[in-house]
Design a protein around this nucleic acid. Structure first.
Lengths: 342, 342
DNA sequence: TATATTTGCTTAAACGTTTAAGCAAATATA
DNA sequence: TATATTTGCTTAAACGTTTAAGCAAATATA
């Protein structure tokens, strides 16, 4: 019973005295195989506990039915939700995914790409590390003719498919809301300017200030790595100003958490003295005290759309790279940290 | 330049006018190939941008260098940290991992196993879904002779390698701590009894009460799915008792969060009126107000040990399944939710 | 009834790699 | 100098599957 050797198509063929080719076709319901043979083949396959060898069929067919996913980390609700939705959509069509993490490191990202290409993935869905500026490795994917879809952190210059939210509008929503709450000196702890999404958030912030005829103060616009630790540091930096802000918009929830901790520790009242807004709608924004106002990034939608975009690619045999940029509307979730009851 | 067809070993061979076999050996630094040839092969490989075809070599060698990982979800710090550490250890040895999520569903878990077997993984590292009771599918892995390593949620009856923490002792640590803080009526919102780790926590709780000569009250021992929502429900249930508890030990941090929310909403003082202890040391336990006392599950260590256990398996050619059960010591992290300053 | 088409298979080759077996030339040993 | 060993390759087959090409038998069409 516990025959150690794995059953192959040949084993089934020899039991039934037909050719391996006929077995392969029967298993795939080829129209040129009789129902009688199909039934017999399937019965024997089941009896012998046959499991198709994916490596062999992938090699022969020239496609692996694997899709690579690269994210900065899985330990964030946004990314894990995107991944889950990519997986669901692709599983339906017989694809499996290989998840890799860059840990925000460019070097790790490159090695991830090598790994995925080596594994012969049929496509790559990725969100870039903070560090990534050089796009040579991504060009490598493109030059191999493998579909590449970026989400969240993409690089427009690469000329590939992209799915993300409207970062510029998000900033506008946030500033509009803070102004409406009576804030006059709104600071922005933003991400790295060279990353497009953070750059868009900064532009949105600047333009929104202009719209509301508020002056743009250099000291109130700070670049950050957006970790919790850096959020603490940059908040401390803002509090050291002679002329403190009355609101802080932070381009990431983890950094917003750090800022919140500093304010709580110093007994500064949120939102009365300083209002706080984060970005990403991580679950903990609704857990902490006070709860943090944030932007919903539509992770589920982004995941599904990324998967669908990939499937579109493989459907067309022609590799005509029709660009597909999808920008979703942002949504502001107002919570206690910015709600003055106005 | 942008030659679409991928470079193979044959291409390199024909450039140098040697056999493909020689190229293969040269690329693997076979001692029977001259240094001159090796250099030439490597140069041409680089020039032609040769990438080895993993599918072909895996098929020929009978191993894929892929390891499957099954977790209930990636969206939890514990699991994502375990995964990251498995990946690090295995990458060093040339293995890549395929991550799949069961979403706590037995059905999804079975389909994950099928997927991984289909992909010809060389081993599987898994933590079981809450629902899983039937172990037929896991037997399937064992019967194929593929190494199986379980962590956190394992099933002793399966007779496979397992890495986890000492759940029984954890409960003892918690009850000791709460008694020391002056608590007399300690409730336990536990996980499903049929899952061994939760069963062990329940046993530890019961025995610790005995040790401290505290009576075991049926109403204070509740079974839960341990989601945030269920944590809210079960806490509400406890508060409806005529004789309320003065401490609640909850077998999962997410459920502990739900309980904390209920207590905060009702203005019940933590830890003065009711002390609270969670399990898992999720990062948010240090973010919420008050911060939640919890048990550190040593996720990094568990990940590394799981990977190492797998590597041990593939090292020995003999499939002698020597059982390897590693139980790590638990560690209690005391925070505000249970610290009465005693 | 004679020819054309369809059905249901088989044969053979291929995907790209690795490896056992073998062989000539170069070098070492007696 | 004659034999043994080592070096550096080649040849051929294999991993398990899929698929193009082909062919005989069965069925459809004229």
């Amino acid at each position: 019973m516990s025959n150690n050797k794995k059953t192959t198509i040949k084993d089934i063929a020899s039991v039934l005295n037909i050719s391996p080719a006929a077995v392969s076709k029967a298993l795939h319901d080829d129209s040129r195989i009789s129902d009688k043979t199909k039934e017999a083949v399937k019965k024997v396959a089941k009896d012998l506990n046959y499991q198709p060898n994916h490596l062999a069929s992938a090699l022969r067919k020239g496609k692996s039915n694997l899709v690579g996913v690269i994210v900065p980390r899985t330990n964030s609700n946004f990314f894990s939700s995107v991944i889950q939705n990519i997986e669901e959509e692709l599983n339906k069509k017989g694809y499996n995914i290989i998840i890799t993490q860059s840990n925000e490191s460019y070097k790790k990202e490159c090695s991830n790409i090598d790994t995925l290409l080596f594994t012969q993935v049929d496509g790559i869905i990725a969100s870039m590390a903070n560090e990534t500026v050089d796009l040579e490795y991504y060009e490598k994917i493109k030059s191999k003719g493998i579909p590449l879809i970026l989400f969240d952190r993409g690089e427009n210059d690469l000329n590939v498919d992209y799915i993300g939210i409207n970062d510029y509008d998000s900033s506008q929503l946030i500033v509009d809301h803070l102004v409406q709450q009576g804030c006059k000196r709104i600071a922005h702890i933003g991400g790295y300017k060279h990353t497009r999404i953070f750059n868009n958030r900064i532009r949105g912030y600047i333009d929104a200030l202009k719209k509301h005829k508020l002056p743009l103060e250099e000291a109130l616009l700070i670049e950050s790595s957006l970790t919790t630790e850096d959020g603490r540091d940059k908040m401390t930096q803002l509090l050291a100003l002679k002329n403190k802000p009355d609101a802080v918009y932070i381009a990431g929830d983890y950094a917003a958490l750090g800022a919140l901790q500093v304010l709580n520790e110093l007994g500064i009242k949120i939102p009365e003295e300083i209002a706080l807004v984060g970005f990403g709608n991580e679950p903990f924004t609704a857990m902490v005290t006070p709860t943090i106002t944030s932007i919903n990034q539509h992770s589920a939608k982004i995941g599904k759309l990324a998967a669908k975009t990939f499937l579109e690619h493989v459907k067309k045999t022609v590799v005509k790279q029709q660009l597909n940029k999808i920008i979703l509307d942002a949504e502001l979730i107002v919570r206690d940290s910015s709600n003055r009851g106005v």
